[in-house]
Each structure stands twice: as C-alpha cells, then as structure tokens.
Computed example of a mutant assay.
Amino acid sequence: MAGSDVVAVVLALVAVGGPVAGLRLLARRVRRHGAAGGYSLMGPFDELWHPAAVAARLEVQVQDERQEPLPSPGDRLV
C-alpha cells in the first residue's frame, strides 16, 4: 500500500467510526442520566432499534401525567 492509500483508509475509518462512537457515548449518557432532555435526540434511534423500551417509556410517562382526583367539598375521608 502506498502512503496515500493508508491515509485514505484511515480517513474512511474515522469518517464512519467517529459518528458511530459518538452516538454510542451519547446513548450511554442518556441511559445513565435518564431519558429527559436527551430523548429528543436519541428518540428516533431508540424507536428503530429498541421499540419495547419506547413503549415502556411512553407508558411510564402517561402514568406520571395522571393526576389523582380531587376530593369532593363535603368528603369526610380526607
């Protein structure tokens, strides 16, 4: 291999491997610190490669948004 061939192979590896490594690091950080804030960036990738996690996350989000019913004005149980 000539010197220019080695440089071309190294540049190709960096061009492909760099973004892949960056996405893996970002995914690890989002999973450790929770999906809030990072989900908008990693959401499409999660939906493609791990749809069960997306479904579970959506279910948890729906349950978190539910509110307890307020007691009636004359309710003595409260």
Rank of each mutant, 00 (worst) to 15 (best):
R29D: 11
R57F: 14
L11G: 02
R29H: 08
Q67T: 15
A12G: 06
R76N: 03
V9M: 05
Q67W: 05
E68A: 09
L70W: 09
A36M: 04
R24D: 00
L11N: 02
A55M: 13
P51G: 13
G43M: 04
G22I: 03
V78K: 05
S40N: 11
Q67S: 14
E47R: 15
G3R: 10
G74L: 10
S4D: 15
A52C: 06
R24Q: 06
G17T: 02
E59T: 13
R29K: 01
Y39G: 13
V78D: 07
R32I: 10
V10Q: 01
A27E: 04
L23S: 09
P44H: 05
P73W: 01
R31H: 09
S40G: 06
L23I: 04
A27R: 04
G17R: 02
W49V: 12
A2M: 14
L77I: 03
P51D: 08
P69A: 13
W49L: 14
V20C: 02
L25H: 00
L13E: 03
S40V: 09
R29Y: 11
D64I: 08
R29E: 06
G38C: 05
L77A: 14
Q61K: 11
R57W: 12
D46I: 05
H50E: 15
M42H: 02
P51N: 11
L11A: 14
V6I: 10
M1S: 14
D64P: 04
L23P: 00
L48I: 14
G38M: 08
V62N: 09
A8G: 14
A35G: 04
D46H: 06
R24H: 00
V78M: 09
V60M: 12
E68T: 13
G34V: 03
G17S: 01
Q63F: 04
V16M: 06
V62F: 10
P69I: 07
G17E: 01
V20Y: 01
V30E: 05
A36I: 08
G17K: 01
P69D: 12
A12S: 11
P19I: 00
V6E: 15
V9W: 05
A8V: 04
D5H: 13
M1D: 12
G22Y: 06
A8L: 12
Q61P: 00
G18F: 00
H50N: 12
L48Q: 15
P19K: 00
G74D: 15
V30Y: 05
L26E: 00
A21G: 09
G34P: 04
V20L: 02
V30L: 06
S40K: 12
V14M: 11
G43E: 07
G37F: 09
P19D: 01
R57P: 03
A52R: 12
L26S: 03
A2G: 15
H33W: 07
G38F: 03
R76H: 06
L26Q: 03
G17H: 01
V10D: 00
E59Y: 02
V9T: 07
M42W: 05
S4C: 13
R32M: 02
V14I: 12
A12Q: 10
V62T: 13
A55D: 13
L23K: 03
L48D: 06
V54P: 03
R32G: 10
G43I: 05
